[in-house]
Structure formats: C-alpha cells, structure tokens
Write a protein that binds this DNA or RNA. Structure first.
Lengths: 127, 127
DNA sequence: CAGTATCCCCTCCGATACTG
DNA sequence: CAGTATCGGAGGGGATACTG
C-alpha cells in the first residue's frame, strides 16, 4: 500500500508542486502577480509604492524571476529618465485563478488557524 | 487609481495570502498534506519513508507546525515502542482542492516555464 | 526613474548524535 | 519508534549607497 506510492512522491526533483512553489512561494511573487493582475500595466515605482514595504532589491529580483519564468513581460521605453512597464503575460494571467482559490481559502480560515495556534502554544506552556 | 489600492496591499501583516503562504510555502508542508490527503492516516516513519529524502528534524518541524495550525491531527498510542498517527483534520482536508488547483496549473505549465527560463538565460549570455 | 552593488543578518534546512 | 538537541552551511532578504 505504501510501496506503490513511493516513486510517486520520492522523485522530488521533478515534482510539479515543488517546481511552482520554488518560484512563487517566496516572499513577494504572489503579491506582485496579484497586483499586476488587478491593476494591469504598472511601472517599477508604481508597484514599489503600492506594496510600500518592499526593498528595491527584492522588487528587482522578484520581477526578474517572474520575467524569466515568463509570467511577467517587461517593456522598456528608451527615454530619459527611463520608463519600464510590467504586465502579466498570458501565462501569468492563467495563474490568477489558482491564487484566487488560495486567497479564498486563506481569508475563510485565517481566524481558525490563528485560534488553533494560540490554543496549541497555550497547551504547551501548561505542560 | 493607485492611491485607492494602497491600503489594500500595504498592510502586509494581515494579508491573507502572506498568512497562508508563510505556513504552507515552506519546503515540505504541501507535500506532507498531499500525502496525508491521499493515503489517509499514516505513522511518522511511514511518511518519512514515502518522502524518502526529508530529514527527521524537518518532518518533525513540519508536522508540529501543521498540527499547531490545526491542519493535521496527532494521535498517540501509549505503548512501547510508541505509535503515533497523523491524519488531516477537516481544515486540512479543505485545503486539498486549493493545492490540487495549484498542482494542475504546475503540471500544465512546467515545461513552458522551463523553456522560458532557458530562453531568458540564453538571451542574457548573448549580451 | 529604474535599477546595481555591497554588506550583513537571520532563518531554513540538513547531518549527526542522542533518548524514553 | 518517534522523536530531541546541537552544529553549521546556504541563501533569502533588508539597508544603504551608487549609476546611466
């Protein structure tokens, strides 16, 4: 019963969930995707302002990774000062429903989880 | 247009996606949830064997976190040697569809993303 | 404006050894 | 069997300063 399932999970290298989570499971990717998904095309500093507390470095890294993965497209206007616009690609857009599903679940169960954690740690301190 | 969206995203502390991603966005949580979701109730070492390349420490930490969040329940049989069984709670089960959605997307788009990355890095080395 | 380049901390995670 | 305890490396991410 277990042995039959070994190979299914053991080959982590090509695990699809790992593959996607390694990319969007970081601190900022999903937030950036959500913002672009909702607001359309945005410039670097617009995204920066909307998020508010992201460092310039991490926004750069996040956008570069998303661009490399083909989730975000980057358009440069050759002018001074430069203007760079970011938009979700079709692939990026296709990820929105999955994120929405996750968001729904999170919104619905946040308080339950929070309560569970508090109960759990309280029970630990008693022991 | 941007200003109205500021508060929606800027308060990261209570951002639901952050909240859920901070928990299941780690290296092993989703895998453990998937395995328990598919195989039902399992003992510590059974999960360990199925995954294969997880360290004992990380399996412990992962299961403890999932238990604290109320996603996994832990049942101890007071015997020697000990027997401990892990099962998804109702809350844990309710997360399965979201994970499935994400998995579907990952499976469907893995190759596209991989190709995109290769193209991207190849174009970098040219410059 | 849209980034780079550094420095550095801190957490995640693995390896290893030990225990009730 | 099902953990705990400890150490240490890798890298994610922030702060700051600089640039075309």
């Amino acid at each position: 019963m277990i042995k039959e399932n070994l190979e299914k999970y053991q080959i982590i290298e090509d695990c699809p969930v790992r593959n996607v989570l390694d990319r969007i499971g970081d601190k900022w990717s999903i937030l950036v995707i959500s913002i672009l998904g909702e607001l359309g095309t945005l410039r670097f500093n617009e995204i920066n302002s909307i998020i508010g507390n992201i460092s310039q470095k991490m926004l750069t890294v996040t956008l570069k990774t998303l661009e490399a993965d083909g989730l975000v497209s980057r358009k440069i206007y050759p002018q001074v000062p430069p203007r760079v616009e970011y938009t979700l690609t079709e692939l990026g857009n296709s990820l929105l429903p999955s994120i929405a599903t996750l968001t729904q679940w999170a919104l619905k169960n946040m308080s339950t989880i929070k309560a569970s954690r508090e109960r759990y740690f309280k029970s630990l301190s008693v022991k």
